[in-house]
């Protein structure tokens, strides 16, 4: 009988436990990236930029070169690194507050310049790190620390579809929205992340993967209810699939 190893610990992921809450999607997304980096054999030339947000300590979990960036400025930092060292594979990992509120300017302009970068965008519809406030992606009616009666279009506007906005830009190569709410979706998410890294390896330009990711703590749900909520509510507002 031939034994084949089909599952193991990725080399690019340190063997430590994370600080994430039970049922949080960040840990899964970190692991998917680590697996992709291993499979593409790019660990030794990868440079990650961690955001300011719940994933601020991502560099304690990935086992390759990492930088921090000020809140919202990950893509400016990534631009500086990639321009200086085009031979490296550079990616940012950013939450919805980081990428689509305080850092919107950097997001749009980095994409518009067509920088050859990979972006992993975690959409959990709240600000996790600061205590569950409204994010630009918060759904209408969703209660958060700063929308205690639920988000109201009249007052706070609509959930911001940054991926659809970015898809309008001619220099953008690839955008796909995926989700972590079931094993099948996790497999698709990994495939999208891999595509986004491959594009950079092939010098094809700006690629972004938006990942709908559960935050049971600030959605005030059990981990399994949080997955249901993605399936039943979030996907209606943020449809899955390839956007560009």
């Amino acid at each position: 009988m031939v034994l084949r190893k089909i599952y193991g610990h990725p080399k690019s992921l340190r063997n430590v436990s994370t600080h994430y809450c039970a049922g949080c999607g960040h840990g899964i997304a970190h692991r998917l990236i680590a697996e992709v980096v291993d499979e593409l054999d790019i660990r030794e030339r990868t440079v990650a930029i961690a955001p300011v947000g719940c994933a601020v300590l991502a560099y304690d979990y990935w086992d390759f070169d990492c930088s921090e960036a000020a809140h919202g400025r990950a893509l400016a930092v990534a631009t500086g690194i990639k321009q200086v060292r085009p031979q490296n594979i550079v990616f940012t990992y950013q939450g919805d507050g980081d990428l689509a509120a305080i850092g919107t300017n950097e997001t749009i302009h980095t994409a518009n310049r067509g920088e050859n970068l990979t972006v992993v965008f975690i959409n959990n519809a709240v600000y996790g790190m600061t205590g569950g406030q409204m994010a630009p992606t918060t759904l209408l009616g969703q209660r958060t620390a700063t929308t205690p009666k639920g988000r109201e279009a009249r007052l706070q506007g609509y959930p911001l579809k940054i991926s659809e906005l970015l898809a309008q830009l001619p220099a953008v190569k690839y955008i796909e929205r995926v989700s972590l709410h079931s094993p099948q979706e996790v497999v698709k998410a990994k495939r999208a992340i891999k595509e986004a890294f491959k594009n950079q390896i092939n010098n094809e330009g700006f690629s972004l993967v938006e990942i709908l990711s559960p935050c049971p703590t600030y959605w005030q749900m059990s981990p399994s209810k949080a997955l249901d909520w993605i399936r039943e509510a979030m996907i209606k507002e943020f449809p899955l699939g390839r956007i560009k």
Binding site: S67, V77, A78, T79, G80, I81, Q83
Partner: peptide, 8 residues
């Protein structure tokens, strides 16, 4: 912040 990255 680009300078931060380039310096890093």
């Amino acid at each position: 912040n680009m300078v931060f990255g380039a310096a890093a």
